[in-house]
Every structure is written in C-alpha cells, then in structure tokens.
Simulated scan of single mutants.
Amino acid sequence: MPDLALDLRYLRYAHLVAEYGSFRRAAQAIGVNQSTLTRRVQLLERRLGIILFERKRTGVALTPLGSHFLQEARIGAEQLHRAVKELASLRAGHEGQLRIGLMGTLVQGPLPELLASFRTSYLGVKIRVEEASFDDNVAGISRGRLDIAFVIGEPQIEGCDAIRIWEEPLLVAAPVEHPIAKNAAVRWRDLADETFLVSSDAFGMKVAEVIGAQLRRFGRKPHISLQRVGRDNLMYLVEEGFGLTLAAESMLGATYPGLQLVSVQAADQFCWSAIWSNSSTNPAVKNLTRQLRQQYQPSPLPGAGTWRTHDRWR
C-alpha cells in the first residue's frame, strides 16, 4: 500500500505532465525547475509502485495503469480541494450556522440593523432565531444550544461574555380616554391604584418585576393581571380599558391609535445585552461579536465582560 500522506503537489505535478505531455512544458507552465518536478513525479511512482509515464524523445505518455490512477485520483483530489475550500470558509465564518436567542422583537431597535449588516457581510451563514425567556436563553448559551442571545438586563454569567447594546425607558401605555393619557409624564405614586396587564412572556415577567419593586416602595401591593396573549392582543386589551401596561418603544412593533404612551418619572431604564460563551469556537459568533464591539463604545463594569451602549436608543 502506498503512503496515504502523499504530498498533493506530487499528484498535481503528475496531472500537469499528463496534460502537457512533457516534463519540460509542465515545469515551465507553473514556474518550477524541471528537475524538481521530475524528481517528485518519480517519487510518486516509487511510492505507488507503478510507472505512470512512458518516457519518449518527443515527450511522455501515460501508461494504462497511470491513466487509470490519475483518472480516479482526480476525483478524490477535487473532492479534497472542495473540502479544504469549505473548511477555510467555515473557519473564516463565511459559512456555517448562527443560533440566536431573543427576548425582544426584531421589528424595532438596533437588532434589525445589526442582523441585516451581518447577513450582508456573511451571506453563507444560516441564521436561526428563537424567542425565549432570560433563563432559557442563558441556559441555551451555557449548554451550547444557542450561540448568542439578546436579553433584557446585564447578565454576569460565569464562562460568558456580554455587551450592553442599548437602553430605553419604560413607558405607561394607557387608553387615550384614560386620565393618565392627558399627562406628559406621571409618577409611580400616581399609578399605585391602577391595574396592570402583563403578558406571560419574558418581557411581561420583567415588567411585573419592575412594577412590584416600584410600588412596594410606597407600601402598596401592585394590581397585576397576567394575560396569556401576545403583545398585539395585550395592547388591544389596554385600548379596551381592561388596565394599563408598561411598554418599551422597541417592543411595540406597531401603531395603536387607541393608546397613549406616557413617560414615567424616575422610571427604570430597560437595558438590552448580548451574551455568548467565551469558549465558543463558532467563527460566526466571533465575527458577530467583533461587529458588536466595533459598533458600541466600551463602558467596563466590574466583574463582567465589556459593555457597550448605543446612544441612539438612550
């Protein structure tokens, strides 16, 4: 059996000699010394244990065994060449897959622009998006089920890096006929007796947490009504007077003519972050996170990775 670690250049030289019918012309075609090319073809013949070429004064011709070998070897060489090219593309992150976890929406905010820019640069990368809670997204990153996640908050998870992308204030969504809708801004104290509708998704749970924390400062128990509906249906219930809700502008994704958005004085800022495993070997992740680091200015936080903010969404 021949050495399977044969230098592919030897095989390429043999193909060129067969194509040009001459060692001299093949050597001239690729700019190498004729003696070098000849020695490598001879080494290939010795390792195979056959004569590839009949040497003649007018040139060379393939032997029957040589013709059969080069015909079969060409197929394998082409497949190997394609595999090497594909591997190079994968290593560069131009192909492959990027699994993205998401707590919010792709309708507004900087995420649509970010992903559109990434896809323009890396058309060969297949993107898969799934919406999940904060805990499910973090678990997906930790277990390798997700490559990167965009979540609410500032996660500090062992083994993960994170970048703060943008912040936005929470707004009260009220029916246009509600007394609160007539104000440019309200205080949390003014909302103590209101019923708040929240959805059962990750955003709704975060909203419920914020409402509870704020109203307990005044010794008031929040009136929260959990609705197992999507955002559009939740806004419809608010329009119909079932209660108020808190909203982030980037989460709305649509215009609701029956609603008025009112600022809350001293309202919490909703922070959105990207999180990924710092041991990820997916080149697509490295390309996307490099894009994130270039796009958002650094603001280091103790005990965490590098955070960046987006002034446009402050």
Rank of each mutant, 00 (worst) to 15 (best):
R293K: 12
R40F: 04
E177M: 10
T306N: 14
H223I: 13
F134S: 10
G101V: 07
S117Q: 13
A208F: 00
Y236W: 05
D147W: 02
T289V: 15
P179S: 11
D190W: 00
L65N: 00
F134P: 06
S199Y: 03
S273M: 09
W272G: 00
S67P: 00
S22H: 10
A18E: 10
H81A: 14
Y236E: 12
V262S: 00
A266Y: 06
D201S: 09
E239D: 04
S133R: 13
V238F: 02
I180T: 01
R308W: 01
I224N: 09
I100V: 15
S133W: 13
R55C: 08
T195W: 02
T306E: 14
L111R: 05
Y256T: 07
D190S: 12
S277L: 05
Y122M: 06
L226D: 04
P110F: 05
E168I: 03
A162C: 15
T36I: 07
H223F: 12
Y13S: 04
Y256A: 09
G96E: 03
E113W: 06
N278S: 06
G104W: 03
S199A: 13
L111E: 04
E113Q: 10
F134Q: 11
I51S: 15
P222W: 03
L237K: 05
S263V: 04
T120G: 13
V186W: 00
S35M: 11
S67Y: 00
K126L: 02
P169S: 07
